[in-house]
């Protein structure tokens, strides 16, 4: 079987460097407000008229704000495996950015292994596969 080509499901939303995986956010150069996704043209802080932003790696770790799982196969554009494999979903609070970011939880970790407040870290994993491609996504994983 030929190897699938790996690509992020969205270009430029997350990256990996020596320190590990991170989300790519934007930061307003006027008031410091962070944004994810980073596609922002006008600062949404009503006290700020900033239109200049710099790309910044968001914190790799945060605390679990809440969580759930997808027990039923979501509709398109979700690309499901056959058969569909349920997965957990995490909302993680980043302390420095003072924001909460959603993402799938790594495969093999279900809701029974999760507790609100526990430390989580970002990794890159598989979102979906086609016969020729593997689509990568950011995922949350309990800190070992």
């Amino acid at each position: 079987m030929s190897a699938r080509v790996e690509r992020p499901f969205l270009e430029g939303w997350f990256a990996k460097d020596e320190a590990g995986a991170h989300l790519v956010g934007a930061r307003c150069t006027s008031c410091g407000t962070y944004y994810f996704p980073r596609q922002v043209r006008f600062c949404r802080n009503p006290a700020c008229e900033g239109e200049q932003f710099e790309d910044v790696p968001l914190s790799r770790r945060g605390r679990l704000w809440s969580f759930t799982d997808a027990c039923y196969q979501p509709p398109e554009p979700y690309i499901a495996a056959d058969p569909f494999v349920p997965f957990a979903i995490a909302a993680v609070e980043l302390e420095r950015e003072k924001m909460i970011v959603l993402g799938p939880v790594v495969q093999g970790v279900g809701v029974d292994a999760l507790t609100v407040g526990m430390p989580m870290e970002l990794v890159i994993g598989t979102l979906s596969e086609t016969p020729t491609e593997r689509h990568l996504v950011w995922q949350w994983k309990p800190v070992a």
Binding site: L10, W65, S66, A70, Y72, P75, Y78, P104, V116
Partner: peptide
Amino acid sequence: ERPDDPDWVRFRIGITNPAYFAMYARRRMA
């Protein structure tokens, strides 16, 4: 394929409406 639409992005990842309601519910439990 509409990556600029947050509604498209969250469905692409598989986060449906009940997932949000469930996270609010779990928050109440905690």
